[in-house]
Amino acid sequence: MIERAWHIPWKVSMEVRRIHVLKEGLEVAIVHTPREGNKLADFMANIVFSFAGTNYICYNDFQYLPSEAKTILNMDKIQLPILRIRKIQNGNFAQDR
């Protein structure tokens, strides 16, 4: 959508147009990052989604983060890779849930 290769769904059309305006005159590279490479952002987005419509959440210090977020940050700090594990069922790979 950002590179104008796909049709823009109306639900996000205003946001995509704003991105187009922001990147005018700039050299911008858009790169896909798999969920495993962005685990903390994915975790925090899920927290925000679960609190949608209520007061906002703000974590100003590491000590106030949920324990899972602390674990993810510490794993990133020691550069421990985060892998997606899949089970083998009947000789085929099946995504672990």
Results as ranks from 00 to 15, higher is better:
P9C: 07
F62N: 03
Q89E: 13
N90L: 02
N92T: 10
I57A: 04
E24A: 03
N90G: 11
L83G: 08
R4M: 12
F49E: 15
T33W: 00
F49W: 09
A69F: 08
I85G: 08
V16S: 01
S50Y: 04
P66N: 10
S50Q: 14
A94H: 13
G53M: 01
I30P: 02
R4A: 12
F43Y: 15
A69Y: 03
V48W: 08
E36F: 01
E27I: 10
E68W: 09
S67D: 15
Y59M: 05
I2A: 13
Y56V: 11
K39G: 12
V28F: 01
I78V: 14
G25E: 08
A41Y: 02
S13D: 07
G25Q: 08
I88G: 06
T33S: 11
S13V: 09
M44T: 01
H32P: 11
M1W: 02
I57P: 02
P81E: 06
L26P: 00
K87E: 14
C58N: 12
Q79D: 11
A69D: 04
I30F: 11
A94Q: 15
I30G: 05
F93V: 06
R35T: 06
P34D: 03
R97P: 10
I57N: 05
R35F: 02
K77A: 15
Q79E: 12
V12Y: 02
H20L: 06
S13Y: 02
V12G: 07
I82D: 04
L22K: 08
E36D: 11
Y64D: 13
P34T: 00
M75P: 03
M14R: 14
T54D: 14
K23F: 01
T33H: 05
L26R: 12
V12L: 08
R4L: 14
R97Y: 07
A52P: 04
Q63S: 14
E15F: 01
R4I: 05
F93L: 14
R18G: 03
